[in-house]
Design a protein around this nucleic acid. Structure first.
Lengths: 221, 221
DNA sequence: AATTAATATTGACCAAAATCAATTTTTATT
DNA sequence: AATAAAAATTGATTTTGGTCAATATTAATT
């Protein structure tokens, strides 16, 4: 019954990275009781646009893609989430996007009503949420900057660099860069076709800007 | 000395739209004393990336463009600001972008130290800032959605629609749509060249999706 | 391990946007 | 009002990315 132990949060591998870091021992123990760990297989939709918010989620490991649907009902990926990221907050009642697993994912799930109780007792959590939103905003602007690059090659190279620096922020080596998501998701994120992305990889390889260990493990030269 | 009157805020045309709306009469009078109205001509840079935050600004009238510089030092516009919008907050010490006037602009300027005093007395202002950041995030995602549209024509049409709904939110008619910013700025925002934007306008006109009163006044059919 | 299914790469061709250049329209200045 | 300057449109050409199709590679399943 590892799921229900009261010191789950004390040993949490991502605690330092998220809002929980502002809680003291007692509050953390309290949170532990509300939190549940859940594992999802790849290609599972965790939450959907428009559905009422029931829980907030922290990623313990694995990768998730976040997307919206445009007017034509096509998927538009707006971000990739990694361990230490959380989602399901700041949407005023309803989720504003879809979240789908790319790999197997282990999540920490906290029911929204329980969470709101913690929030009342620890108003500083709100500051953490505000900071997280500001961070999301700067990531969205980074995305915009990539999307306005003129060539597909630049977009793909910037994407690889972005994932590399993300690895860096998580305390992992910047090389090799692991592109766990399929090429099609990269293409979607960059506003390109997967064939174009594939060709960009080939060109970047030819220019020796990158090397490929495997098609998901890239070395930035 | 209209600038120094203590009831400036009481008659403020944009108060209902921004954080000041959560203040009571006394606090509003207090804010009035700190606030200064300033007028800028077009093409004036109000604030720059990296500079320390000295004031926060509310737009009373006119239009401002917000941009960042990419690695090559080129301008990338990330948004246009209208009356009722504010900027200069949530950047932790330093401005994270450039703000430049597109038209003549009248601003309400509040020194950051004075503002922080108000914030301490009225913690609910922080909630308003949080909401505003969430709103900025959804605007950024709208921008991303436009940027990933495949054709230039779609991008330009979406842009016009976006400005139209912005007018709607400000309580103005949705038609005609006033594109105060130069074509070059529209192109930059959309990740296109101005010639391409110009051609898109011509095509949309030919398809009778839009009509042009003047080149800045567009009717959405 | 062998077969099947899913992804990714490469190729040929076409459509769309970028580029370079000239012209027209609008705005600013004398 | 006339001239100069700035911004926008249109044209011709090149480059790039999209599309459709075939092949190759990787992953999943029997």
């Amino acid at each position: 019954m590892n799921n229900y132990q009261a010191d789950k949060c004390t040993h949490c591998p991502i605690r330092s990275k998220i809002y929980c870091s502002c809680l003291d021992k007692d509050n953390l123990k309290d949170l532990s009781i509300s939190a549940r760990h859940e594992t999802f297989e790849k290609k599972v939709v965790i939450l959907s646009y428009g559905k009422s918010i029931k829980s907030i989620y922290n990623i313990l490991n694995g990768i998730i893609k976040v997307y919206q649907l445009n007017e034509e009902g096509e998927q538009q990926i707006i971000g990739f989430l990694y361990p230490g990221d959380f989602f399901g907050s700041h949407e005023g009642g309803n989720y504003q996007f879809f979240a789908e697993t790319i790999s197997q994912v282990k999540l920490c799930k906290i029911p929204i009503d329980k969470f709101k109780m913690h929030l009342e007792k620890n108003p500083s959590i709100k500051d953490r949420f505000y900071e997280a939103t500001i961070n999301e905003l700067s990531l969205a602007r980074e995305h915009i900057n990539i999307l306005t690059k003129n060539s597909a090659e630049e977009k793909v190279l910037d994407f690889i660099k972005m994932i590399s620096s993300r690895q860096d922020k998580m305390g992992q080596p910047i090389n090799p860069v692991h592109l766990i998501m399929p090429r099609n998701d990269i293409a979607n994120y960059l506003g390109l076709r997967l064939e174009t992305v594939s060709r960009a990889f080939t060109k970047l390889k030819a220019k020796e800007l990158i090397s490929l260990n495997s098609f998901e493990s890239i070395i930035l030269n």
